[in-house]
Design a protein around this nucleic acid. Sequence first.
DNA 1: ATGAAAGCGCTAACAT
DNA 2: ATGTTAGCGCTTTCAT
Lengths: 328, 328
Amino acid sequence: MATIEDVAKRAGLSRSTVSRVINHHPYVSEKKKKLVYDAMKELEYHPNSSAQRLRTQKTDTIAVLVPRLTNPFFPFLIEGLEMIAVEYGFQLLICQTHQDKEKELNFLNLLQTKQVDGLIFTSIENDWETIATYKECGPIILCNEYRSEATFPVVRLDQVKGSYLGTRHLIEKGHKKIAYCGGTASELGIDREKGFRKAINEFSLEVREEWVFRDPYSIDCGKRVLREIQVMEDRPTAIFTGSDEIAAGIIKQAKTLGVKIPEEIAVIGFDDQPIAELMEPTLTTIRQPIKEMGQKTMEVMLSMLNNPSGNEKQIIELPIQVISRESV
Amino acid sequence: MATIEDVAKRAGLSRSTVSRVINHHPYVSEKKKKLVYDAMKELEYHPNSSAQRLRTQKTDTIAVLVPRLTNPFFPFLIEGLEMIAVEYGFQLLICQTHQDKEKELNFLNLLQTKQVDGLIFTSIENDWETIATYKECGPIILCNEYRSEATFPVVRLDQVKGSYLGTRHLIEKGHKKIAYCGGTASELGIDREKGFRKAINEFSLEVREEWVFRDPYSIDCGKRVLREIQVMEDRPTAIFTGSDEIAAGIIKQAKTLGVKIPEEIAVIGFDDQPIAELMEPTLTTIRQPIKEMGQKTMEVMLSMLNNPSGNEKQIIELPIQVISRESV
DNA sequence: ATGAAAGCGCTAACAT
DNA sequence: ATGTTAGCGCTTTCAT
């Protein structure tokens, strides 16, 4: 492997000049520039990125922690993040935590070992205390999931409002017995339940505790929930869910059991993923501006990188809306 | 940021000893080991990965080129790749080419700048000649997509057989007029068409050229294809597709147009993604052992890394099978 | 078992 | 406009 030294010799110049050419510095004569380029080509020279990183103390890389890529929500979010990152010459290091606390901690290590310049959480596994420890290690942003104790910037959607609107939509369609199936493990989940209950209370309805499912997250979870509901004495007539996957699972199971949707049970999803339009009936859902959230997040990250002092807490909230289709 | 030097001073030892502790070398007395660990903890020391990489000339990182993560096929493939990689202490750098030749070339650069130790293609945008150039830059493997001229190891599925089986399945269900909608841009596509035609010929059927669609890849493409078919005078009674997404698009559009599936038109997908079970009718499809393909690929990569001379061509083919559901 | 010293490949301050 | 030089933080021979 050719080094910068080799190129310098070959071009009959100093390492500095070669370095200047590589980094597009001004004040290099055209003549020598050409000499350098020729030498680089002949020697098939490519700068060693580890050396560059060591020297400059920058990696131009941002870590993005996601629970798993097989949940389509996250690829779409990454799409937004990457769009802005690439524009400014940054690359993403995508890290799947698989919902594992220890893995998450290991990824935080990337910041400490200077393998990345900044880190973005899109889901959070560990306690806030644990994560707060890393504040000094470099710019960190919470995107999508959040913690109110957070002292990092947060880019998120107004989950309370989202689930409030979704639930109100169900109520306006005449439903009075509504189940909640959104998850409450995270603060995001708690807020969703909050919005849900806000709508419920506003219309003086009641929620039976057995209609509240706080763990579901997948297609299979959705299926299971519907099976549980079907054996209840007093059944809800509508279900609010925390993702299109859960909703899809419910609908799928309903077909298997011969339960009519939305006549017997209405279902509302969350996310507006491609699957929402493909299901039969098509899925009424709550659209999150995922890509925009990604873009906004990366913009905040870049500004933190440019202005290291400006990492105070700030909360950016994006709008959310109900997309009415056939499942309600 | 504390450096190894700081730790050495603090522990009253040399940098070498600290380094030995970090890297779990033998022949360090327990006493000094403890001294080092204490110092590391007090100083919150974390080794700088750029320095380590520069020194060792290794990154323990493998680049994985995918067209896009929003196509669920690739997250599942990554699942398999990552499982093995993590086991052996490697991390993945996931790179989306977005089907862009230039981006693909830029990612190949990662190998030249020593930012990764090896690189895996899961799709190929550039000419083979162009890619062949990079052979000397480090271990490269083709996974999923392939080129017969390839001089790198290839891990793939038997596409000819897959589409042959799928098509035969349609024929055995009584179809004689079958459309092909699989893509032919890549060699993978060509092989699929080959398998398709093999089955067609075996049963002495005919394929009208207007029934052959070589470009489709997405849900929207599938919709478009069905619209085009519906305005034909002589319509096929079955469609072979190159992905569950395309098939899903066709089914969706069929509903919109009031076309009955499978009665008026049968559809077979490719991949067996979660969506295949959610559609109504459920999707008959060709299952690819995606995760296994990822695992196998990473095993080959690791063996290349351990044995740099062993990067000769080898082709590993995995089995494929038809999953019969309702859409045929 | 431990330390001294060289050097991985690069950039940037300083000097000219 | 170009060159000289120091040093980023680490590992690894070599010596003891």
